[in-house]
Design a protein around this nucleic acid. Structure first.
Lengths: 212, 212
DNA sequence: AAGGGCCTGTGAATAAATTGACATATACTT
DNA sequence: AAGTATATGTCAATTTATTCACAGGCCCTT
C-alpha cells in the first residue's frame, strides 16, 4: 500500500504542517487549494509541496489543484491518525500532567490510559480521569491493556531505566521528553522532544541578533 | 567576533547536542575527546563533527583531539548560554507551569520572572516563587523588568494575540508552544515547539512499522 | 463542444549537506 | 631526540534536497 520507495525523513517531517494547514482550511470551509496557495500559507515552495505530496500518490488534479478534504484525509492516513493508540506516561510531574491534560492528542487518536510514578504522594491521584499508579504495576498494565506508546516525562536520570521497562513490556514506540538519548533495540520507534535544545537555539539567535 | 560567514541552520541545530554530550563528559571527568569518539556518542559522523565545529573556529589540536572543558565552554558561548535572559510566560495552564517549574532552564541562564493569565482563578497563585499576574499588567511588566523572552503556552486561539502583545512590549524572542504559526516582524526571533507534530511523526513510524 | 487558462506531475538543473581522503601538526613512546 | 601513531582542518567527491521549467491534462467559460 502507498508508494513503494522509502520517503526521506526530511519530507515526513513536513507532513504534519501540511495536515495542520489543511485542517485549518477545512474549518474555514475552503474546499480547494493549489500548491501555490499552500506555498503562501506554509512558507514552503509550491514545487516542494508538489514533490512532497507526490511521494505518496497523485492527490491533485491538473487545472484544479487539490481537494482540501481529500488531501487532509489522505495525509491523516499516511500519518496514522486514522488509528487509535493506547499510551501511558511515566513521570507524573508537571510535564506529565500537562500532556495527560492536553486534549489535542485525543483528536489525533491517542489515549492516555494511565500514568505511573514512584512518588507515593502522587500515586492514587487522578488527572482528569487518568489515574496515577505505582511503577510496580506498569509491566502488567501495559500487557493487559494493549499499550503501544510509552511516554517518558521523568528527569534524565531515570529515562533509560523507564525505556528498558517499556522495551521489556513490549510497547512499540516511545515519546521521550527527558533531555537525554536512550538506547533501545533497533525496531523500537523513538521520537524525542528536546525542550532544552529548542531553547538553546532561541538563545543562539538572540545572541547573534545582539551582536549584529 | 566568531567566524564571519553565516552558518547554516542545519549545523546550528546540532550544536546543542554536542554541548549536551560534552557536559556529560565533563561530569564523568573526561578531559579529552576525538571527533571519532564524539561520533560514537552522538551518532553523527566524525567528519561532520569536525566540519561543524570548524564553522566557529579551530577548537581542536592535531594528534590530540578536543579539550572537553574548553569545547563545552566555547559551544556554550556560541549558543549564548553565558548570557542571562529574563522571560515571562503567558498561559498558566499545566504546560506553562511545567515550564515554570523546570530547573534546567535556569542552568541555561533563563529566568522566568512572572506568569500571566486571564483566568481570575489562577491569578495571584505562585508556582515556586513565580507569581501569576493578570494579563492587564503584562506590557508594563515587560518594559520595567527587561524581559527579553516571551513564552506562549496558551491554546492556539490566543497565540497570535499574545504574540502581538509581546511584539508591542518589545521582547526580542518568542518561544511558542501553541500549535499554530504566529506572524511577527522579521527581526523578532521565534522558536516553535511542536508537540503535535512530534507526535504525528511517532504515529507515522508506528503505522509504517505495522504495515511492514 | 471547442478553446484558453490553469495547475499538476515529473525530469532536469542547481544548491546544500554529508562523506571521503589526505597533508600536516602534535602527542607519545622508546 | 627521533620516529611512529594519531587526529585535526580542509578540499574534493558524493549524496541528498530544493528549485526550475514545461508537457500535458483538466476545468471552465462561451
Amino acid at each position: 500500500m502507498g508508494k513503494d520507495n522509502k520517503v526521506s525523513l526530511t519530507v515526513i517531517r513536513r507532513l504534519p504542517k501540511y495536515h495542520r494547514y489543511l485542517s485549518d482550511l477545512m474549518d474555514r470551509g475552503i474546499s480547494r487549494i493549489s500548491s501555490q496557495e499552500l506555498s503562501v500559507l506554509t512558507g514552503f515552495t509550491a514545487s516542494q509541496i508538489r514533490q512532497d505530496l507526490n511521494n505518496f500518490g497523485g492527490f491533485g488534479q491538473q487545472g484544479y489543484g487539490y481537494n482540501v478534504e481529500d488531501l487532509q484525509r489522505e495525509l491523516g492516513k499516511i500519518l496514522g491518525l486514522d488509528q487509535k493508540y493506547n499510551a501511558v506516561i511515566v513521570g507524573a510531574g508537571n510535564l506529565g500532567q500537562a500532556i495527560a491534560n492536553y486534549r489535542g492528542f485525543e483528536d489525533a487518536g491517542f489515549r492516555v490510559l494511565s500514568m505511573f510514578d514512584r512518588n507515593p504522594r502522587v500515586i492514587g491521584l487522578k488527572i482528569r480521569d487518568i489515574e496515577i499508579r505505582d511503577m510496580e504495576h506498569i509491566e502488567d498494565f501495559i500487557k493487559e491493556n494493549d499499550v503501544e506508546i510509552g511516554i517518558i516525562t521523568t528527569p534524565k536520570e531515570s529515562a533509560q531505566q523507564v525505556a528498558d521497562i517499556y522495551v521489556k513490556a513490549g510497547v512499540k514506540g516511545i515519546w521521550n521528553f527527558a533531555p537525554t538519548d536512550i538506547n533501545v533495540p533497533d525496531d523500537m520507534i523513538i521520537e524525542n522532544v528536546r525542550l532544552n535544545e529548542s531553547l538553546f537555539i532561541l538563545s543562539y539567535f538572540l545572541k547573534a541578533a545582539t551582536e549584529k
